[in-house]
Design a protein around this nucleic acid. Sequence first.
DNA 1: GGTTAGCAGTCAAACACGTTGAGTGCTAAC
DNA 2: GTTAGCACTCAACGTGTTTGACTGCTAACC
Lengths: 339, 339
Amino acid sequence: MELSDRKKKILQLVVSDYIETAVPVSSKSLTEKHLTNLSSATVRSELAALEELGYLSQPHTSAGRVPSIDAYKLYVSDLMVKDNLSVNELEYIKKIFLENTNDVEQVIKQTAKVISELTSLTSLAVTSHDESEKINNIKLFRFKPDGALLIIVTDTKLLKDSVIELSQDMSDDRIDEANVLLERMFVGKTFKDICNYNYNLDESFENYKSVFLKVIDALKDYVTTTDDVILEGQDKILQHPEYADLEKLKKFMSVVTKKDKVINLLSNDGRDIKINVKIGTEGYEEMPSDCSVVSATYSVGGVKLGTYGVIGPVRMDYGKVVAVLENVGKILENILSNR
Amino acid sequence: MELSDRKKKILQLVVSDYIETAVPVSSKSLTEKHLTNLSSATVRSELAALEELGYLSQPHTSAGRVPSIDAYKLYVSDLMVKDNLSVNELEYIKKIFLENTNDVEQVIKQTAKVISELTSLTSLAVTSHDESEKINNIKLFRFKPDGALLIIVTDTKLLKDSVIELSQDMSDDRIDEANVLLERMFVGKTFKDICNYNYNLDESFENYKSVFLKVIDALKDYVTTTDDVILEGQDKILQHPEYADLEKLKKFMSVVTKKDKVINLLSNDGRDIKINVKIGTEGYEEMPSDCSVVSATYSVGGVKLGTYGVIGPVRMDYGKVVAVLENVGKILENILSNR
DNA sequence: GGTTAGCAGTCAAACACGTTGAGTGCTAAC
DNA sequence: GTTAGCACTCAACGTGTTTGACTGCTAACC
């Protein structure tokens, strides 16, 4: 059933008021603040109708109304006005990304931090290990007698490195030779190619066989390894009155500090949408039910960079959150692709 | 004034009981649990004496006794029995350090995590940028047309890297030549040497002047840059009843997430002791006063690795904490120096 | 002198109760 | 369809009251 325009308007006011104040909204406050041409009794009957439809509920008979999960969903999809970020906020985002755009780790951390700061919510991030990422540059660098650093630069121009053990008899010359071969073999290939291809290292590799096997392992590791999870602004959750309860806080923290659970929260169920809003975390055990997660996946030139998002009370400022996620994504993608 | 043996014994029991239970200890519970050959009235008069001396206090007249800051100090310096870690715990520590002993960042994180896990407290770490650290290996590695990675291996065999911008006309050959010069100039030198020495790059450096200046800047940066701060187990604080109060939690979080404040908390006031115990964080503004910090500085071969510690309620298990810090340090230093 | 039993005193915590006021639903009139 | 008026509900708050876990004190005892 389609809601009348007035019902929509009232529902929108209730949700946005409640998001702002965290207090059940009463018919009186609505007529005083927004609907000055209506009496509270009229609004009351509309509210009763909306409650009948499942969009509102009362904590107790003599309290105002609180939005239901369905109301939030409708609010996000239909009723909400997306925020515009202020010039200051946009400048702040840009400033953050001016430095350190080489180190993946740094970029992710900074991104998560910006998002957390601007939304006043705890932010989450998982790095994507995109199989279709192409290798642009690869090289071994000996840093101690029995160890070398494998440095990989990909499409997105972000650095990755890992340590490779060397056998004792690996001379510097042979590392140089190995580097030539490495370049020939892997530059221009995607991680997927490498995983699928079955390298049979013939006699020309004789001298480097063990090193090459380790390099291939390391490359495969980038794809199969469990994703990195970053958490920023854990303290932000304390600002929200719904988490004044210690038990809820504990639940929240215990989920948010567990890698696999976070990955689960940020998954977008295969749907290919830019911004993913999960209202009410039903189905996520251990999670307090009045939690929402809003996430976005960023990519550069078709290669996924990672998924970023925020987690907080269902009563969060979706307009602002969506605006922040969109803008951070836009700016980040811009900077990374124009290097 | 020196305490009688019995007073010491009773004070020790009160502190350890309170640490365990978080409940003011009564004369009755002491005679029931530990001092079965004394009556509660006797203990009561001893408690009254200890209160007179400033070691104990009562939350209210009809409550048991709670240790004062002075009592904790005496407990740590004189009365406490240091814990022995279980075989399982020792194995757990060793296992953690088996991998990733090359990447500084990883080592620090893991160390902080182990400490947090074993003590059930929030752990803090600051990396030391020790001026006296010697450079073992240094090399530039081009990873994109206008950028190179500067890789430095030090005495402690831990990797450090930073990105150096390259001018457009820097050929690969010239990078190779620069690397030869870099090695000649910096290997065997300490960061201190480099900071103090005034490099006047004569005509033989003509081609690399700009790169060298950048490298020198990067090297100096390692020393002057503000230290990295790591935080682990922030959620652990929720387990302690003294932080059931939201305001305290906020204060705690706001300090613990601020770099400069953490560095301050972990500073050892120039005193050259292995384990530093700060009981009651008086003088640290914004910090709830009933906080303690226990920290230790780890080093390998005379080079400081960093300072690690825990922060939590004054009522923490000092015996356990000290044992964990000592053992983690021993094992870490061992592993790193025997590579 | 140190130790103990007994007893009066204190006070937080828990519970019950009354009051208040912000909110509602319903109804009758406009 | 809208509104004023009124009875009703119930969380929040403040005020007793009771309970029991402590203590300090005192007088007797070893």
